[in-house]
Nucleic acid binder design. Structure first.
Lengths: 358, 358
DNA sequence: GATGCGTATGAAAGCGCTTTCCACGATCCT
DNA sequence: AGGATCGTGGAAAGCGCTTTCATACGCATC
């Protein structure tokens, strides 16, 4: 049906081995021969058979990217910039294809997709999103990743803690400074004068949740060793969706413990928090300050614009693409931490003066 | 290295042909044999080699999904629900992998990715997003799609007009009722009393832009045949990004032609419109009403919440997955049009009374 | 009991590519 | 000048699977 290598070879008057060589490089081919072959490829409209190539070479042009959910802007932006960086300007090397898998953060789904990708002989895999921190799961994950890496698949962990694999394996990690970001955000709130700061954390057991909460708590503690304890009752765990922030806030409100600021696990949750607060008649930021995390695009369009922490998703996607393709070598410790940045906007302000609004 | 079919066969005491048969079905296999084979697969931790399978079967488990940009929520949601529907409950058939490609809507990029997918022997391809309406491009696209379809690749066009291919080819189309949605949105504005309605359209030459603008114009015309002409100077074309809406609105404002409402190509553009309006001291909706399109998640969190038109992205993704896998047959005309729904929220209201605020 | 059919399995031929192994000139070097 | 070296290209052996084709068996049929 389709044009094959052999046909191109016949058309160019060379052996199929030669055509393969001009296609893949690595082996010297005379200029004139190369030209002839390239012309034959052009004339016949040859399109390489990926599966055949992958079978013979024991590695494919596929690169897997595991995300919690591409529909979530956080992952959409990450996956988007990753995919774009994977196919650089339509260059000859740019035939790599990104396979995106929604894992919902479920460990078994991650393992299943990795098995599929291993079966596809994926040239690389990038795992994004917080990791479920459970010994059994991470052991299984480490095992599978080690096996894939041993077989030559380049692995990049993005936004999750490194896994302990032998240093010889091609496994790199790109982290976000979640801890630092949460720390600076809490500091910002403290500086404004807030003391009763509620925190709507992400799902428990997730690395991201832990990092952000830890940074937050560290800032409180630094300010006043007793503050974390005082604020502990104001900390609730929820999901990463808007509704989780909404529900958590209603719950907080219902409990009646006073607070003058709410920091959320991410911007989406913060939107839910703001909605619940608004319904309860609280003005933002006059009555309660609200802060998010991630700095997703919509955070400038909320009312008021959301104070948040910028997470360099695009940069991470590009970096992950470079690492997973080998265009860039992993740094010495094989782990790169990308900085986060506090974005102060209108949703945070000094707390209302005591008794100014009961 | 990895466990192969032959090893499984040896372990189970059967031929590799038999193992292949239990794996793929289609051929009768005795119950006892099947059990033995399944046990061997389990014991050895066999993972099928995708490329080998694809090479032999001339079709792979890969399904391509072309989007303008997954980082855009519109496409992220579409691609996300599509991917999820592709891997149904980890079922045996659920080994299909989604390859997402950001085309930026550029025809040549679409063709390039299709070539790559053709080379990968993708089992299916879904093209999403408005199509660039240019004879040369659509001819090239039709040709490539026909060829792929002829080779057995199932094709789904989603959110773009059908292509004229022979009826025997497995090409289906899922459309959104953009025209109807835009029509009802304009009607809503008219009913509120607006007459000078600005329209920030998408890029010219794109099917989506045309459909939405046509629906909008049709509603104006229906109300008053002269209205479209009166509003024409208030129609500007821009991109689909927030900044495009911002810039377009500044331009509109600069021109000085009065308007009491702005309908935007989509929600993201509407956010830019609202920002520009706000900077210019216009209150929404008191001074100017603003409406978007798509009903992306953030549209309920803007200030005020955005009146828009819901586009059933999740439903479309699921449908596309069913069509592309053959789990669902295309309807008689091979085209399904999904309804859109007007979502009236706080950003639209009656226009200010004449002279009430100069 | 010979004939026929349907069912369950094996043998083996590829699928289209990569890659080792070799062969052949041409170019060096001493 | 002779052998070593280098650059270039061909032959052929797979890579791990699917899929005819052929075979063998069991059972109903006449």
């Amino acid at each position: 049906m389709a044009v094959t290598l052999a046909e191109v070879a016949a058309h160019a008057g060379v052996s199929s081995a030669t055509v393969s060589r001009v296609l893949n490089g690595g082996h010297p081919v005379a200029g004139s021969t190369r030209t002839r072959v390239e012309q034959a490829i052009e004339e016949l409209g040859y399109i390489a058979n990926g599966p055949a190539r992958a079978l013979a070479a024991a590695t494919s042009d596929l690169v897997g990217v595991l995300v919690h959910d591409v529909a979530d802007s956080f992952f959409g932006i990450l996956a988007g910039s990753f995919q774009k960086a994977l196919a650089p300007t339509g260059q000859g090397d740019g035939r790599r294809l990104a396979v995106v898998c929604n894992t919902e953060g479920v460990p078994s789904a991650e393992l299943d997709y990795l098995a599929l990708l291993e079966g596809q002989r994926a040239g690389g895999v990038v795992l994004t999103g917080g990791a479920v921190e459970e010994p059994h799961h991470s052991a299984a994950l480490t095992a599978r990743i080690s096996r894939m890496a041993l077989a030559g698949t380049r692995v990049v962990l993005c936004g999750r803690p490194p896994l302990s694999v032998p240093a010889a394996l091609p496994v790199a990690t790109v982290m976000f400074d979640d801890h630092g970001g949460a720390f600076r955000l809490a500091e910002h709130l403290l500086t404004l004068g807030h003391r009763r700061i509620a925190y709507v954390a992400g799902p428990p057991g997730l690395s991201t949740t832990r990092e952000r909460l830890a940074g937050h708590t560290a800032a409180l503690r630094r300010h006043d060793p007793a503050l974390p304890d005082a604020c502990a009752p104001l900390t609730v765990h929820a999901g990463f969706e808007r509704s989780a922030g909404y529900d958590a806030t209603r719950e907080l409100l219902r409990r009646g413990a006073p607070f003058t600021a709410v920091a959320a696990a991410n911007d989406t949750v913060a939107a839910g928090v703001a909605a619940a607060l608004g319904e309860a008649g609280k003005r933002i930021p006059e009555d309660v300050s609200v802060a998010g995390f991630d700095d997703l695009p919509f955070s400038v369009d909320t009312a008021p614009a959301l104070t948040t922490v910028r997470v360099p998703l695009r940069e991470a996607g590009v970096l992950a693409a470079q690492l997973v393709t080998g265009r860039r070598a992993a740094p010495p410790g094989r782990i790169t931490t990308l900085p986060t940045e506090l974005m102060v906007r209108a949703s945070t302000a000094p707390p209302p003066r005591e008794g100014s609004r009961p």
